[in-house]
Design a protein around this nucleic acid. Sequence first.
DNA 1: CTGTTAGCGCATTCAT
DNA 2: ATGAATGCGCTAACAG
Lengths: 365, 365
Amino acid sequence: MNRNGCPIGTETGIAVPEPDNKKLKKSSMRWSPRALPTMDDVAKVTGFSQMTVSRAFLQSAPIKEETRKRILKAATKIGYYHNKAASSLASQRTRAFGIILPTLQDSIYVSFVDAARQVFEDQGFDHLLQTIDYTRGREMHAIGSLLSQRARAILLPSIGHTPETRKLLQTLPIPMIEIGNIPSHPIHYAVGHSDADAGYLATRRLLEIGRRNIGIICGVASETSNARSRLRGYCKALEETGFEIDLKLQAQVEHTIESGLAGLDRLLKANAKLDGIVIGGEIWTSAVILRLLASVRRIPDDIAVVGIGEVELGPYLPVPLTYVALPRREAGTKSAELAVKLIRGEDVSEAVIKLPVTLVIGGTA
Amino acid sequence: MNRNGCPIGTETGIAVPEPDNKKLKKSSMRWSPRALPTMDDVAKVTGFSQMTVSRAFLQSAPIKEETRKRILKAATKIGYYHNKAASSLASQRTRAFGIILPTLQDSIYVSFVDAARQVFEDQGFDHLLQTIDYTRGREMHAIGSLLSQRARAILLPSIGHTPETRKLLQTLPIPMIEIGNIPSHPIHYAVGHSDADAGYLATRRLLEIGRRNIGIICGVASETSNARSRLRGYCKALEETGFEIDLKLQAQVEHTIESGLAGLDRLLKANAKLDGIVIGGEIWTSAVILRLLASVRRIPDDIAVVGIGEVELGPYLPVPLTYVALPRREAGTKSAELAVKLIRGEDVSEAVIKLPVTLVIGGTA
DNA sequence: CTGTTAGCGCATTCAT
DNA sequence: ATGAATGCGCTAACAG
C-alpha cells in the first residue's frame, strides 16, 4: 500500500509480465519433462532398503519412528512422491472413492462434497470427482473412468437412471451409494431424503397459512425423479386437505432460470386467484421471488412462497425465504462413512439411510 | 401419471423401500468384494493373446479393427475395465491432468472446469479435480495428491500463493498453469486476465456516466491477490481522472455475503454523497444490489453499480446488472489446450496467455 | 497384424 | 525392525 491507500504494483494495462523460470528454455517455451524419483532413489540416499522406504509411506507397517522420519525427510528433499499407480498395483487395491456429481453449476452439491471429502480425508482416503452435467451418456462414462481407476465405491446422485442403466449398475462389482432423493429401488445403498416429503412439507405450510390456490414450479416429472417425487408430495398434501389436483397449477419446466420464469408466468396467467407457490428447485427460487415482487405482488400477502432447498441468497432477498431444507451435508458425511465401512468389510445395519427434511420459516410463507 | 396429473408411486412418508440386491447378503448388509477381470481373462475368452487385448485398449496400436471390436465386446461382456494403475505403471506415464479449485462454493469456476474438461475429454485425457476451499494448507496437500497420481500438468488458481509456496511450486517437475488473475511472476505458465483491468474498466464506466464519489467493495488486499489487483485498477481510473484516493470509499471485506453487506453499510454511512459502487466479487453482487434497493436508493439514479464477474441472477435482478465479464470459459479452453501441447512436447509460443475482460452494460450503470 | 519377453515401482510374504 | 525375493497387470520393444 502507498500513502493513498492503494496497492503498489505493476502497471495496469497491456503489459504482461514475463515468467522467470529456469526449467523453461527461454527461447522456446517448451516444457522439458523430468522423471520423478522412485523408492530406490530414496533408499540409496538413506541407506535403507527399498522395502523400508515403502514402509515409511504405509499406514500401519512395522517401522521405527525415527527411521520413518529420516526417510520422509529425505524423500521430501529429493522430491519423491509416493507413486499411487505402483502402490495400488502391488497392493491390489486403491484408497480412493469416486463421487459423481450431476453438475457443478448450481452449487447444490457443494456442502455434500465438502462433508464427504472431510470424512475421506480424515480416514486417509482419496476421492475422485466426476461431473456429468445432467447428461445421461456421461454417467456411464464417469463410472467407467472411476472403475478404471479402481475406486472402491461410488457416491452418485440418485436422479435420472434409466431402467437399462439401473440394471447395468446393479451388476457392478463395487458398492454404489445413491445420494439425494431415495429411490424406490436403490441399486445397492442409498443415503438421502425423500423429495416427496419435501414437496409435502412445503405444500402443507402453504395450506396451513390458509392458501387455497397453490401452484408448483418444478422439473419435468417424466425426466427427473426428484421432480416426480416433489410433485407427488405436493399432490398428496392437496388431496389430504380435500383439494382437487389441477394441472393448470403445475409448471413443469427445464432446468434454467428462463424456463422457470416462463413457468411462473403461465401459472399467473392461468390462475387469477393463485395465492401460494411451491418452488421445487433452488435454481428458480431467487428469480421467481424477484419477478413476483416486480409484478407488484406482495409476498406473502398476495402470494406466499415456499422453496425446496436452501439458496445462498435466501436470507438476503427482499423477503427472507421460507424453505424446506434438504440434508445435503449430512448425506455427505453419512454416505462417506458408509462407504468406508463397506470397504472395510464391516457390517452396516441399513442399506438405506433416510435423513429428515425440515421446514425453515422465513418471511415468504 | 394418473388421470389427476400427479405421479403415481410409493406412499410419501416414513416408509423406506428395501433394496433388492443379490450381491448383498440379506441378513447382514455387508458388501462382499469381488475382484475385477484382467486382460488375461479377456484373452482367454477371445482366444487372442494378452498383448493383443492390450492393443485393443491403446490409442494408436497396430490392430485389425475387427479384432479390436471383438475384444472390446468380450471385455464389456465379462465386465473388464482397463486398469489405469497397471497401464500407467507399464507405460511410465498417465493420461491425467490435475485441476485445483479454490472452492466449489460460488460456482465461479464452473464454466472454467467445464471448458477444460471438454478439451481433455476430446483429446482422450482424464482430469483429477481437487478443491482447497481457500485454505492455504490444503493447496500443497492437493498438489501432493495430484503428483502421487502422476498428473502430467496442473491447472490451479493464481490466487493466494505465499512466497514460500511459490518457491516450492517453481521446482515441481510438471508444468503448473495458473488460471485467473495473471500474476506478476507466474510459476511456469499462466492463462487468464488482468483483475486490474477489470477494476479499471468497472470504475471507468462509473466515471464516464458522471459519478464522482465511487466506492468499492472487494476482498482484503493483504490476503488475496485479485482483490489487490482490482483495487489497483480502481485507483488507477480515479487518479487518471484527477480524483483523490479516499480510504473511506474502500470496503475490504471477507468472502461472505454478510461481510459484504456490512462493508456496504460502512460505505453508505461514511460517504453521504456516494453515487457509484464497484462490487469486486460475484459473491456480494446480488445481495448488495438488493440491499441498496431495499434502502430506497434508486439504481442507477441515486447510486450506479458495476459488478466484476458474471452472476447467474444478474439479468433477473430488479435492475439488470452491468458488469465486467471475466473470461472464465475461454481460460478453461486455452489452459487445457496449453497443457496438452506441453506434455506432447510441442512448442508453445507464449508462457502467458492474457484474455480480455469486457464490459457488459445492463441497467445498473 | 499378432505373439513373446522383460520390467515398470511398489507391497506382500517370508526370512533374519 | 529390517531385508530379499516375487509378482501385481499392464505396455515397450522386439520378433515373426
